[in-house]
């Protein structure tokens, strides 16, 4: 995880704007082809906002495979919130990940499970004032 994979927003975003923004971080990092972002958007349109997995937290992703160049993770923290039309709205922490095959990202998901067991993680994210703060909270001392 690099600090360039993080963005901090202080404006209300629609889920589509937010998924595109977090997808762009993966794109700028050379980890995906642009089509992967469209696939992440389509996934929400097709399957509903279930990617909002917990109050304040969502994880966007699409299928592993040809639209992915390398395994990567990006993260947006939005202080104002993102509307996913989910019971878990407003979303303040939006992850996106991409992986070349279904087994490769296991480490990421299990680290994420540990991280998200912290009930106060959203409150802590809202206290972040910079990318550095976010990096420290989520990624320092972790393998993500």
């Amino acid at each position: 995880m690099k600090k360039s994979n993080i963005a901090l927003f202080d404006q209300l975003l629609s889920w589509k704007q937010a998924v595109k923004a977090v997808g762009n971080l993966l794109l700028e990092n050379g980890s995906i082809y642009p089509e992967y972002i469209d696939s992440m958007v389509r996934a929400v349109e097709e399957f509903g906002p279930y990617i909002a997995i917990a109050p304040g937290i969502a994880i966007a992703h699409a299928k592993p495979g040809s639209e992915v160049k390398k395994e990567d993770v990006a993260l947006i923290v939005d202080k104002k919130g993102i509307e996913f039309n989910s019971k878990n709205d407003p979303i303040h922490v939006l992850f996106a990940f991409c992986t070349t095959d279904a087994d490769h990202h296991m480490k990421f998901i299990s680290d994420l499970a540990g991280l998200l067991s912290d009930d106060n993680i959203v409150d802590k994210a809202l206290e972040c004032e910079s990318k550095e703060d976010i990096y420290k909270l989520f990624f320092e001392r972790r393998t993500l």
């Binding site: 279930y50 992703h61 299928k63």
Partner: peptide, 16 residues
Amino acid sequence: ICGFGVGSSTLLRIKL
């Protein structure tokens, strides 16, 4: 189960 069987479902699998 999730949309692609790799993201949230993996998280849920670990918890379950």
